[in-house]
Design a protein around this nucleic acid. Structure first.
Lengths: 193, 193
DNA sequence: AAATTGACTAAAAATATAATATGGTCATTC
DNA sequence: GAATGACCATATTATATTTTTAGTCAATTT
């Protein structure tokens, strides 16, 4: 390792810049400047801008998965695990500047890289949910079924109840949200009385 | 009524043009030309382009509601009514050129009028669902609950399972779709086995 | 000699400018 | 008095010009 780890410097500067300005508005010159490094140096570690971005995104995704994983406790009922994991994921996505900036960038100017990145995040969340569902089925904690479809449905329902609902309604309290999600997951929308 | 009903001519031409080209790409000159009418004539019946468009949209919404209403039979179970109504709505939206063009216009260039129009359509569908749910609750056919939230959840779930699912997966057969929706509505995603 | 650099380039993006198209009006026509 | 289309101010689009940017590589530093 050199006196100063230039690779680490670049990664740190890139993380800052992508989070602050998004993909498009982050320039390689800027990253080099923040990292106190010649621009050419970046290219000794990373093929191009996209690869550098991928590295940063992967780190953020790793943390997201880590936080979600931390909400899973084998002894807790399936619903509690799902609810707290999803709550953590949505909250993390709403707090992490990188995800915020990318959502905004996709909305405002539709950068393909932002779209691809957010899709990758969704895929990871779906994989996470699907695994949790499969394991719970194996344990006999929940009814058998198509885990992929169920994961997809649960995620979309949760996003609908949080992000989408708040676009045209006053937001629900956490308590209300949890009750609704609980009912929908365990009894369906409209089980007979 | 005049020898030729110019208002009707204008409406017909506008319906054609908005369906074929969307909101933005429809010009008043063009509508006048198709309607075989001077441009000024349009303005004797409609304040401006937006009002003319509203008239056309309202007609399409009226037909959508009519078709959905036709799927409701008092003697049929709640789920069957909901499923067939939603299926009809999604299918109509996918077939009616006006809705197709507006979705495309919103996606491609984000015309505010297209966004507002599609939001109006969603609101009408939500109102329809909410009424159906309330009536079913009153009849005791389904469990009591917040009808607005339930309507919102059901619609979002149905859209997720049809339109959104097909964006990155092979589409489900109607039979699969119906089974999944049925299970999700009446038993939830993950009722205990 | 291996790592680092920043001036350099081709291509892309932003900006400025000119040309065209459009919604809406209203004096004239039918 | 209903209908019209030339007309106008504004918005949109097309084009030319400038600026910015990702990526390279010969020169420099370690």
């Amino acid at each position: 390792m050199a006196v100063v780890d230039r690779r680490e410097q670049v990664l740190h500067a890139a993380a800052q810049s992508f989070s602050l300005f998004g993909y498009k508005a982050t320039t390689m010159d800027q990253v080099a400047k923040i990292a106190n490094v010649g621009k050419g140096t970046i290219y000794t570690f990373f093929e191009n801008k996209e690869e550098l971005f991928d590295e940063i995104l992967l780190g953020a995704i790793r943390e997201l998965r880590h936080r979600a994983e931390a909400e899973i406790h084998a002894e807790r009922p399936f619903f509690e695990n799902v609810y707290h994991a999803l709550d953590t994921i949505v909250e993390f996505r709403e707090e992490h500047e990188l995800f915020l900036k990318l959502s905004q960038e996709l909305r405002d100017i539709g950068t393909p890289q932002a779209k691809a990145a957010l899709f990758k995040v969704e895929s990871v969340v779906l994989q996470f949910l699907e695994r949790l569902i499969r394991e719970s089925m194996d344990k006999g904690a929940i009814r058998e079924g198509n885990a992929e479809v169920i994961a997809f449905g649960i995620l979309k329902l949760f996003i609908a109840m949080t992000v989408e609902w708040e676009m045209h309604h006053p937001p629900m309290s956490k308590k209300e949200l949890k009750e609704h999600v609980f009912t929908f997951l365990t009894q369906g929308f409209t089980a007979a009385p």
